[in-house]
Design a protein around this nucleic acid. Structure first.
Lengths: 225, 225
DNA sequence: GGCGTTGCTGAAGATCGGCTGAAGACCTGA
DNA sequence: TCAGGTCTTCAGCCGATCTTCAGCAACGCC
């Protein structure tokens, strides 16, 4: 699970990074509002841990801008005081949960897990495209009623395409979403997996659900191919 | 991607120009406020890197004038001090992000890329002109309800015209936007692609969506031809 | 109507991007 | 450690696409 921590207090940020990494989260850190907003806009995080007091752009504004841009990432706000005002405002600007400083690390982890679960269930569970059904929660795929066995990578690629059904998705984006890889990763990897995917969900059925968008990447046909 | 660097410190400007060019950006440079504003107004940049301390017209004023003129180009401000005042003012005048000097080049590149992506996603997803529909996200085009298969270049040209529907767009601008090419590139390349485009989206339907503006370039008819 | 300029278009060779089979690395569970 | 499955890398192939060129057409000015 991917977490973004936006916190200007370096020591706390570092502590959270280490602690959450040890808990099995993948953690990125930003130390001010604008770079936090940029990271959150740019990467597919599951949850953002957002301090309110931030240089450049405070937490409320980061939060509302994120929501304004259509993001439905989970947002957990860290309120410095424990007055009701802060918390109400946090929820008003679109945060999903809040925690008053100082907080227990164990509680934070529990809240993050709970939030991630809620967010996860908020996401569309199934994507139906004609006779192709992708079930993100169950991690299953059926075509024309028949179950199709996919490897983890194949499913992850399909799942990502399904979440953006109808849109052209670049290989770079797929690499980022599925592989957590650096900028030097090879787009051919995606091609190989798409090739395998097609062999399973397209070739036997004679219709192309996964379309190539030359020069860009791929698109999962919104009408089922 | 096109970047304008407005920076009066010659050595830094030159370093940025070289570095960003090496990263694959197309870079123009201005050394004072007024010429920066003029360049930004006259050309279709994706992002402007704007120093605050500038002769003639400071960065805040360049930024607010750009916004006042209706530009929604991405603006990344370079703040000399790292006081909160600078940064808040930068964002208030309409900047999208800021970076405190001295900054790491790698960070600048990452921020530029993130900003460009955010700006891109701000653009309208679909353009509808009569019976012609251009969907930038899906990278598809339909005319009179029928899908039209376009090559990447053809689509890029159409997409650019669609973003300025009704306006006359010069071949030079199209070259800049679609080809990332130098000043010695051949306008005939655009003509060839427009020709191919017309064969696909105009000829079969008997009406001209892509109109020639002699001496200037082309215009996508706002009423769909 | 004549002329220079500008735009259109078919053809051809060069280039690019994507697909795929194969091989070996890797991971996991027994 | 072994077996089975999966993932990544590599290289060759192939078709789609791009650019360039050259001749022709259209336009507008005189």
């Amino acid at each position: 699970m991917r977490v973004l921590v936006v916190e200007d207090e370096r020591r706390l940020a570092l502590a959270l990074q280490h602690g959450l990494t040890a808990e099995g989260f993948r953690v990125d850190v930003a130390h001010d509002g604008p770079s936090g907003l940029a990271l959150a806009t740019d990467h597919a995080y599951d949850v953002v841990v957002l301090d309110i007091m931030l240089p450049g752009l405070n937490g409320y504004r980061v939060c509302s801008r994120l929501r304004a841009s259509g993001s439905d990432v989970g947002i957990l706000m860290l309120t410095a005081k424990d007055g009701e005002w802060d918390e109400a405002e946090a929820l008003d600007t679109g945060a999903d949960d809040y925690l008053s400083k100082p907080f227990s690390f164990v509680v934070l982890v529990a809240r993050l897990r709970a939030l991630a679960r809620r967010i996860g269930s908020r996401a569309p569970r199934r994507t139906v495209l004609g006779d192709l059904v992708v079930d993100s929660a169950a991690r299953t795929c059926t075509r024309a009623g028949a179950a199709v066995a996919l490897t983890p990578r194949e499913f992850a690629v399909l799942d990502h395409l399904a979440r953006r059904a109808g849109e052209a998705v670049s290989k770079r984006e797929i690499l980022d979403a599925v592989w957590d890889s650096g900028p030097d990763s090879d787009p051919n990897t995606v091609e190989v997996h798409v090739s395998a995917l097609r062999r399973k969900i397209d070739t036997p059925y004679g219709r192309a659900a996964v379309q190539t968008v030359r020069g860009t990447g791929y698109r999962l046909a919104a009408d089922g191919g």
